[in-house]
Write a protein that binds this DNA or RNA. Structure first.
Lengths: 338, 338
DNA sequence: TTGTATGCGTTATCAT
DNA sequence: ATGATAACGCATACAA
């Protein structure tokens, strides 16, 4: 059905080599030849078959983006930037979801049928990363948002300790003193929440304060639901906080709703801040104070690092730190949006 | 590097045909043979090369999902279900974004280099669909959410007229009489907004009412921003509404914020309802009344129809109508969430 | 500058 | 039941 190199060659009365040269924009082709071949190409509506090309070259031009769930706002915003950056670099992006299934995460990492298609993978770890230790994924791999692991993989992430420190310092600067946090993970081997707790604790210590263990609540899935329940528990607890630092914006959205449902008010009674800067927070009521991550930066550098490693597999592992910015809004008492 | 059929065959001392049979789980293979080959496979860690397989079979196992922007909540929720459904049916999903660029939409539809990879495409039209008329995409195509076009393509969508009617009827049932709508498109050839306006108008007519043209506002991108500005304009207008029907939840989120920013209240002064049932609406304050679309249903049927057409290209075009449900919440005065 | 011929790793068509 | 071998469509080493 679809025209092939051979069809074009036949029609133009030349060899397939010549046609291939024209298609590939090879330097040494006479303009006469080029025009003739091009006409045959146009007449037949010829399109190179990418699969054949890829079998031959060994490249698929496909990147995998593995996230827990694509409909979590942070991941969909990140996906948007990754697809944009990859497209510019000549790659397609296939999205895979691990759900909250650690076994599935493991399968996606090893050489399953699926992953053999990829030239490389951008991986947003689920809850832990130990699954990766000693594993050979069979293709270049970039970790997004998680640093641990043996040093075999490139990674791109913000400085989580500093980001958490900044968020906490902001709450303290408002005069709040009874701080709580939401977002630790039962899984001790997941680095991000540990780092955020460390930043939280350090900022408190710098102000001569400390948080009781029960003021730092776990959240399994970083969902609005999790945030809601954790905040409700804090409010119902012995020492209700006057400010809550949530380890994600989604947790914060749930927490804010819980505050109001308990008859209290944000930010008057309890100030709330998150991390991620998802779009939802800008128009929420109150608008959500947060730490903004530069997802475009993360995507650009992740794709660049991956592309480099695809070309040169034994490059030393890169460790890119992405910038972050404190964005105070109404949920910590900063008044109207622009 | 990676082991091939030939390597396995050599090691097991058989022909590649036999190995292929074992891999493909072909019926007629002696168990002795099978065991011997399997051992060789395991020892070499052989994995079939999907690219070669696909060159041979002509199938890529890849579906394209084309959406305007993956970080729009409705699309990311839909993508989640599509990826799930496709995975079950043995397909991978590549996500492509048209942005708001109509030229890019057109490119993605015709046989560009990119699209030749796909066995089929699930297409969420941007703003218009006339770009498709007379176009041969070169692969099966399913339209999501848009019905128009010549009848060559399958499509899956809700009954937009009825959904809009239901939403409007709900507002009327609250006793509201000064209704407005947000979400028409300058582009007359985009069907969905036209249908929703029709449902809106019909419901009003059934109550002996009619909406002045300036009470039905356009929204270019269905963003929170668009909703905010349209609602602000309505409130500042000569005849401020007591209820607003937004053609998407995102518009509604922006509209609600605009109401409060103008010193009024939802639902007391103005009731607001959207369409889509995005997660954000459940925890928003007030929680958002909406018309829920069954995205799992849409994804399941879209993937099924696509898979069927990939197998049998000249199937008659299907037209699947997905169910919708009215979900009243606080933004139209229905009290607390469960 | 252009043509010929080989192989990428599979599946499928012949045989045996 | 299994073996030999021809495509699938392209890129490229080698020849001319």
């Amino acid at each position: 059905m679809a025209a092939t190199l051979r069809d074009v060659a036949e029609r133009a009365g030349v060899s397939i080599r010549t046609v291939s040269n024209v298609v590939a924009d090879y330097a040494h082709v006479s303009s006469t030849m080029k025009a003739r071949v091009q006409r045959a190409i146009d007449e037949l509506g010829y399109r190179p078959n990418p699969v054949a090309r890829r079998l031959r070259t060994g490249r698929t031009g496909l990147l995998g983006l593995v996230v827990p769930e694509i409909d979590v706002p942070y991941f969909s915003q990140l996906a948007r930037e990754v697809i944009r950056a990859a497209s510019l670099a000549g790659f397609h992006v296939m999205v895979d979801q691990t759900g909250h299934d650690r076994g599935r995460q493991r399968d996606l990492l090893r050489g399953s049928d699926r992953t053999l298609l990829f030239d490389g993978v951008l991986f947003c770890p689920l809850a832990t990363a130990d699954d990766l230790v000693g594993v050979d994924p069979g293709h270049p791999l970039i970790l997004l948002g998680e640093h641990k692991f043996d040093g075999r993989f490139d990674h791109v992430a913000i400085d989580n300790v500093q980001a958490a420190f900044d968020a906490t310092a902001h709450l303290l600067s408002l005069g709040r003193r009874r701080l709580a946090a939401i977002g630790t993970q039962p899984d001790e081997d997941f680095e991000t929440p540990l780092q955020r707790t460390e930043g939280f604790t350090r900022a408190l210590a710098a102000a001569g304060l400390a948080a009781a263990p029960e003021q730092v609540r776990p959240a399994a899935h970083y969902s609005r639901q999790d945030g809601y329940h954790a905040a409700a528990a804090l409010i119902a607890g012995v020492d209700p906080p006057d400010a809550i630092f949530c380890y994600s914006d989604l947790l914060a959205m749930g927490a804010i709703r819980a505050v109001f449902d308990s008859g209290l008010s944000v930010p008057e009674d309890i100030a709330v801040i998150g991390i991620d800067d998802i779009d939802e927070g800008r128009f929420a009521r109150p608008s959500l104070s947060t730490v903004s991550l530069d997802t475009a930066f993360i995507a650009d550098h992740a794709v660049a690092a991956l592309a480099a490693r695809i070309d040169t597999p034994d490059l030393p592992a890169r460790d890119v730190v992405a910038p972050h910015t404190l964005v105070p809004r109404e949920s910590t008492g900063v008044q109207p949006r622009a």
